[in-house]
C-alpha cells in the first residue's frame, strides 16, 4: 500500500527536486478547476447510470413516462453545473 500522503506529496511536488518550502500552488488554478468539473461529471455520470436504467424500464412499460424519466435522468447533471461555477470563480 502506498501511503496516501506520500502519494499526494509526489503529485503535488511533481517538479520540485528538493523538499523546498514554497508558497506555489500545487497546480495552476485552471487545471484545478478543470479537475473539479471532471470529477463532478464523473459522479453525475455514475448517478445517471442507475436512474437512466430505471427510466428506460419505466418508459418501456408506459410511454407517458418519457418526459418524467428524462427529467429525473438528467437531474444529477445539476452537480456539474454547480462545479462549473468553480471555473468562473477560480480560473477566470
Amino acid at each position: 500500500m502506498i501511503d496516501p500522503t506520500t502519494l499526494f506529496a509526489v503529485v503535488l511536488q511533481n517538479n520540485s527536486t528538493a523538499p523546498v518550502v514554497t508558497s506555489d500552488p500545487a497546480m495552476p488554478a485552471a487545471a484545478a478547476a478543470a479537475l473539479t468539473v471532471g470529477l463532478a461529471a464523473l459522479g453525475a455520470g455514475y448517478a445517471e447510470r442507475g436512474i437512466g436504467a430505471a427510466a428506460v424500464g419505466a418508459v418501456a412499460e408506459d410511454d407517458d413516462m418519457f418526459g418524467r424519466g428524462l427529467i429525473l435522468t438528467v437531474l444529477p447533471e445539476t452537480q456539474v453545473i454547480l462545479a462549473l461555477v468553480v471555473v468562473f470563480l477560480v480560473a477566470l
Partner: peptide, 13 residues
C-alpha cells in the same frame, strides 16, 4: 446485475 431496470419494469407491472 441491472436491478434498476428490472425493478422499474416490475413496479409498473
Amino acid at each position: 446485475s441491472n436491478y434498476e431496470y428490472v425493478i422499474a419494469r416490475v413496479a409498473s407491472r
